[in-house]
């Protein structure tokens, strides 16, 4: 299992801050597609971090157990 974390405007849509996901053979891009189907996130400009590093949304990296995927809306610090 991997953990998916949601922040800001995205957490508002998903209505939770994190959830577990079964990762067997799942690519980052597939994972995003699944989440997009589930939550319809298309209205938000989402960035993706895998284990705290930004990755491309189309990344074909395969997820492993204990990976942490984060869906990040636009940054607004400062």
């Amino acid at each position: 299992m991997a953990v998916i974390k949601y922040f800001g405007a995205i957490a508002e849509v998903t209505n939770c801050n994190e959830e577990q996901i079964e990762v067997s053979d799942l690519k980052v891009s597939d994972c995003l597609e699944l989440l997009n189907e589930k939550y319809n996130l298309n209205t938000i400009d989402v960035s993706v971090a895998l284990n705290q590093n930004l990755v491309d949304r189309e990344s074909t990296i395969k997820l492993s157990d204990n990976d942490e995927i984060a869906l990040l809306p636009p940054f607004a610090g400062g």
Partner: peptide, 20 residues
């Protein structure tokens, strides 16, 4: 670069998400 998120809360308690 820093993943900080900001919810702008209006006086009527509605909100919008801040974007840099």
């Amino acid at each position: 670069k820093v993943p900080i998120f900001g919810k702008e809360i209006f006086e009527d308690e509605s909100h919008q998400w801040k974007v840099n």
